[in-house]
Design a binder for these strands. Structure first.
Lengths: 219, 219
DNA sequence: GTCTATAATGTGATAGAC
DNA sequence: GTCTATCACATTATAGAC
């Protein structure tokens, strides 16, 4: 059975659902990068909704309105799609580690959180995708990078394993990170109106300070 | 190709890896419930390690030392396995909602968190499994229970959608829940020694109070 | 209770025409 | 850049012998 025969009439028109107004007909050479971006958009939606593993290429292709084979023109593999989406977050985490440097303890941790809160608004949806597919993404990118554990997320937790830290400090540091992440998820909760990003960020900054028991933000 | 031919010598002995000392030989009728429990143990390990979706029945059967068909004697389906594992957590969440009742606001929320912290120690591994497979488990059990969204986890978030709550309250309530969950994950961080459960619980109780800005625990 | 063998289906991925 | 058609493979699940 051909690719989309189950869901599309054999010779029918291409644009389904009216999800998009086409400037020029599909199949005669689309604008550069346009389809690629739509694939990423659709994939992000599905990965967030139902997870990376449960989302098939057939499903992505269907929603975009192309065949699976077209996906393989734009991306080398399914993993390539999720890797491309995750890249900004990955780089963000990576440079966050660089910021943290070798210092430990709540002080530099707070700086890191402030910076993370700032970045979060711009990438909240990608962060959410990572949060909901952390294990899957972790394994994908462990398979690529040969090494055992290069995911920055894990590095954060390794920081907390520092024996110089008390249990109380560990709980509050890990907890404050969780607060920030939950704040990002809260911002995109369906059914509730999205809060003002600046107000949310300010609220988060105060909240993590309460949890880490340090002074209020300087700004 | 027969089931385990790739990993087990055709006529070889049954017990592999010496993972378990057998009182009496396998295949002559095992002790009631023994294999079933081992299946659950192995499945829990794998679901936590690499996720529900990426774990196949073949893999579970291999580690247990039986064939896939044997799994189907003990469980109706793969979903049945994960549902059985998730059941205690599900019931816990459910009764937590009953405890919360109709009241909103940080007051009853704190009571709920105290209770959750208490329960967490006894079920930390199952909670971790849920946390890492929330989307998968959610969909599995939505498929069973016909209804659209009966998962208690979602109900917690619906509480936070109450328009009577300020953004600050929402952030702190969602955040405090995240702190408790992260505390459970912290307790089982590989590589670091497991903290004393009672001490961890006490630390969490104080931490969530700092975040919710209420007094210290009465106990 | 466990096995062998197989069914039924879906998946990621590729070849080659247009 | 997208299509049709197909491949090779893994998966969940079942049937029936022992």
């Amino acid at each position: 059975m051909p690719d989309g025969a189950a869901t599309r009439t054999k010779g029918g028109p291409l644009g389904r659902r009216g999800r998009r107004v086409l400037i020029r007909p599909r199949g005669a050479g689309a604008i550069s990068g346009e389809t690629r971006q739509r694939i990423l958009d659709v994939a992000l939606d599905l990965f967030v909704e139902q997870g990376y593993d449960k989302t098939s290429l057939r499903e992505i292709a269907e929603r975009v309105g192309v065949t699976k084979a077209a996906l393989y023109y734009h991306f080398q593999s399914k993993e390539d799609i999720v890797t491309t989406l995750h890249m900004p977050v990955h780089e963000l985490m990576h440079s966050a580690m660089a910021r943290l440097g070798d210092s430990t303890g709540p002080g530099s941790w707070l700086d890191f959180l402030d910076w993370l809160i700032e970045q979060l608004a711009a990438h909240s949806r990608l962060f959410l995708m990572y949060q909901r597919n952390a294990t899957a993404i972790g394994e994908v990118h462990r398979k690529d990078h040969g090494g055992p554990e290069v995911e920055p997320e894990q590095l954060f937790l390794q920081r907390l394993a520092d024996p110089a830290l008390s249990l109380d400090e560990r709980v509050r540091m890990a907890g404050s990170l969780a607060v920030v992440v939950s704040g990002a998820a809260l911002a995109m909760q369906p059914g509730t109106p999205a809060p003002d990003p600046a107000e949310l960020a300010a609220t988060l900054r105060v909240a993590v300070r309460d949890l880490l028991r340090v002074g209020q933000p300087s700004a």
